[in-house]
Simulated scan of single mutants.
Amino acid sequence: MATIEVFRPDDLGPALREARIAEDITQQALASLADVGRQWLNAFEAGQKSSAPLDMVMRVISELGVSVTLSQRAPTPAPGIDHEPIDLDALLDGRQQ
């Protein structure tokens, strides 16, 4: 079972859309299986239903066979750490001279 991690309500629909596409399920087929309208599912997957009814969202999740982890906010980088890529070859060449 795949696990989807989301940090904002607007991220859940698009994440489930990716899972649906990965499973090669059409939007119409998933809507039918989850007993939701295709137009509702389309708006939900587009991130336009951040206050969607939980029962509808749970049916979509269940039909996709995924697990969802909700987190309060995205992880933040530790302070003082530079997250730019480092060219290790250039760094080592500079030390050898």
Rank of each mutant, 00 (worst) to 15 (best):
D10H: 10
L30V: 06
P79H: 07
L30I: 06
L30Y: 03
N42Q: 14
D10Q: 15
E23F: 06
T26V: 03
E23Q: 15
T26Y: 08
S71K: 15
Q72R: 12
Q97A: 11
S50A: 12
R59H: 12
K49F: 03
L30R: 00
I81Y: 04
R95H: 14
D55C: 03
I4L: 15
Q72E: 09
S71I: 07
A29G: 06
M56A: 11
L64G: 00
A2N: 10
A46N: 09
E84S: 15
L64I: 11
T69I: 13
I21P: 00
S62G: 14
L70S: 07
P9H: 07
T3W: 04
R20Y: 02
A46Y: 04
A90R: 10
V57I: 14
A2Y: 05
R38H: 11
S32L: 11
A31T: 01
R20D: 00
N42I: 05
V60Q: 00
R59M: 08
L88G: 02
R17A: 09
S62A: 15
A15F: 08
P75A: 10
A43G: 03
K49E: 14
L30C: 01
I86C: 05
D11K: 08
Q96V: 10
S51D: 14
A31E: 01
Q72S: 10
I86H: 13
Q28N: 06
A46I: 07
A52L: 07
A46F: 02
M1D: 05
R73Y: 06
D55L: 11
D87C: 10
L92H: 03
R38N: 07
I21E: 13
R59L: 09
E5F: 05
E23P: 01
L41V: 11
I21S: 09
A31D: 03
G13S: 04
W40F: 15
